[in-house]
Amino acid sequence: MINAALSTFGAQVVLATSSDENHPPENITDGKTETFWMSTGMFPQELIIRFPDNMKVSLISVHSFNVKRLRIEKNAQEEADKFEVVAEKEFEQTENGLQINDITLDGSTATHLRFLILSGYDHFVSVHKVGVQA
């Protein structure tokens, strides 16, 4: 499942704090690393992904570029509010390729995942793919 596109399971990005119409947030859930969402200036940046049902999440993999500090929050409700922090990580900088990071969670259920990009290695950062393992 980690290699499949999240969008095939009905997951969608319901909030993104930046939008360039050439690099929309849907690019994160299409399962491809060639397409990406790009932030358009200033931090923090926020993304919220909604799953159609409660989903067990034990691992999240993120393909990105120039992201420095990332915080992940989740909730298990219908509304996208009242999130709890489940992980915070500082990514290493890469030069000629994407950052690929796996973040292990406790396997409890979620309806929404919220990604807060707190800082970056550049003015602009990109997220190419988010994969989830149940």
Partner: peptide
Amino acid sequence: AFYSLYQDRRQMIQGLG
């Protein structure tokens, strides 16, 4: 200047994926 910095980075990232 900020806009051209953005375009620059965008193109660079495009070459990475």
